[in-house]
């Protein structure tokens, strides 16, 4: 995983005001990690709208029954160990 400038970790549902602020703060070289309620954004193909790599925490995705989405969201599903690696490889981390 090439070095990530800023890893944005988002756990807010799509309609939460902080979600929009997070999406607006994404810069080239950053990455977005969706966890808890934020994984609901993959029902709206958020990953197609942002210009940075988007990861989603698999246990939260599967818990919400989103593992079945036919289209197969193009957010990369990660497990907890990979999540830890992402945070370690990022220069900065913002937990929204």
């Amino acid at each position: 995983m090439s070095d990530i400038k800023t890893l944005h970790i988002l756990n807010k549902p799509p309609e939460h005001p902080r979600t929009q602020q997070c999406l607006e703060a994404l810069n080239p070289g950053d990455a977005l990690l969706l966890i808890e309620n934020a994984v609901l954004a993959i029902t709206m193909s958020v990953e197609a709208e942002v210009a940075v790599p988007v990861f989603a925490l698999a246990p939260d995705v599967v818990a919400r029954g989103l593992g079945q989405s036919p289209r197969g969201a193009s957010a990369s599903l990660v497990d907890f160990p990979v999540m830890v690696n992402l945070t370690a490889s990022a220069q900065n981390v913002i937990s929204w």
């Binding site: 698999a58 818990a63 919400r64 029954g65 989103l66 079945q68």
Partner: peptide, 23 residues
């Protein structure tokens, strides 16, 4: 309503987050 409609989705597998499925 709102994000609450997500309660109604099928195939909720909550084993990994150690919670009882709302389904």
């Amino acid at each position: 309503t709102g994000a609450g409609v997500n309660w109604l989705r099928t195939y909720q597998d909550t084993q990994e987050i150690q919670q009882k499925s709302v389904e």
